[in-house]
Simulated scan of single mutants.
Amino acid sequence: MPGLNSIDRRALLAYHPGVPPKKREAGRTKPELSKKIEEEVMKLLKVGFIEVSQYPEWVANIVSDSWKMFFDGAVNLSGSGTGAIMISLDGQHHLVAAKLIFPCTNNVAEYEACIIGLQAAIKMGVAKFRVFGDSALIILQTVGEWKTKDAKLLPYHEYLEDLVREFEEISFEYLPRSHNQFTDALPTLSSMLQVTDGLEVEHLKIEVLPKLAYCMIVTEELDGKPWYYNIMNYIKKQEFPKGSTPTDRKYITKMASKFFVSGENLYKRSYDSILLWCVDAAEAIQIM
């Protein structure tokens, strides 16, 4: 491809042969906002904070079809650990983590984290990969900008190069630690794990909850009656459920003293004098 080195891991682009790239229509910005942006850009150019780079127009319009991986290692008083998060094309997150039970430096832990992530990706058949990490040592060595003379790191670097050859396309990019906090938590948790014989930790599953935890305890009533039916029935008719024991009746009487009925609605008196409307499962779901 003219102007691009197809084997340079710093500039790999995902594209489909035979499908011509499409140029995206130029967006429009308000004139007053454009002027402010231009002034800020010129200031950055003047002080040398940014520079102008020339690329083919279609480069910015390429849609990536690569998996992503974020890795990190941790060494602290509790021990050492590694962690990596792989994100598939459909946004699914695959987590791998390991506790290191041998003495190591932080650089070794970073290499271990990157390697276990690459190994997992290879087993899953990932062909195109974008790797992100906050270890400048690993990233810059892998892209060929740095070279290490540390005898402990040379075997790691050589093995990492072997794993890289297993992918059709792969790139390594530096990511500031402030943008890698979630991945940083994995090796920290792994390092704190107390190792015992036969210990096996199940995969971490993180659920996304759209509702408050205490609101989820309201479930569908099996008998078709709301949870407050007996309280409301006692207040309106002074009746107890059939088959109730003296203890049950005493409890209902005590509970009823905290509620009152207005029309067809039941309210609970709170300690701060706010009236709480009692709802059934269907109403709770509709409100939430």
Rank of each mutant, 00 (worst) to 15 (best):
L154S: 01
D223A: 04
V279L: 05
A11M: 11
K30E: 12
K22L: 13
Y251G: 03
D65Q: 14
C278D: 03
D280R: 11
C114M: 15
P21K: 03
Q181R: 11
R269A: 02
E40W: 10
T82Q: 00
W277A: 09
M232R: 13
A109H: 08
P155W: 10
G48M: 07
V143E: 09
I115A: 01
Q181P: 03
L95Q: 07
D150G: 01
G3Y: 13
A282Y: 15
S53I: 12
I85Q: 04
S191T: 06
S178A: 11
S270Y: 00
T245M: 10
H179Y: 12
K23A: 05
G198M: 03
G263T: 15
T245I: 04
F259V: 03
M216S: 09
E38N: 15
A284I: 03
D280G: 05
I7D: 05
P21Q: 06
P155Y: 00
I217S: 13
V75P: 02
K22R: 15
E51C: 10
F167I: 00
E51H: 08
S6A: 15
I138K: 00
M232K: 05
L33M: 14
F240V: 06
E110R: 01
I37L: 15
A84W: 02
A281L: 05
N180W: 00
E202S: 15
E264W: 10
V75G: 00
L266W: 04
G79H: 08
V52N: 02
Q238L: 01
Y174P: 00
D134N: 14
K128A: 07
A151V: 14
A97T: 13
E161G: 02
L193M: 14
W67D: 01
R9N: 05
S6C: 15
A11E: 07
I138Q: 00
Q238V: 07
W146K: 01
L209F: 07
S178F: 07
Y156R: 04
S190V: 09
S78T: 01
K35I: 10
G18D: 06
H94G: 08
I115M: 15
K23M: 06
K23R: 13
D72A: 04
F240D: 03
P187W: 06
I37Q: 09
T196H: 09
K99N: 02
I231N: 01
T219E: 14
A282W: 12
A109Q: 01
F49L: 13
L95M: 10
E40R: 10
I101D: 14
L13K: 01
E239R: 06
E168P: 02
D72I: 02
D65Y: 05
V47Y: 00
I62K: 07
I138Y: 06
F167P: 09
D72Q: 09
Y174F: 07
E158M: 10
V208S: 13
M232L: 08
P210C: 05
P176E: 12
G81C: 08
W277P: 03
Q92C: 05
F260L: 05
D280K: 03
T148F: 12
R249K: 06
C104M: 14
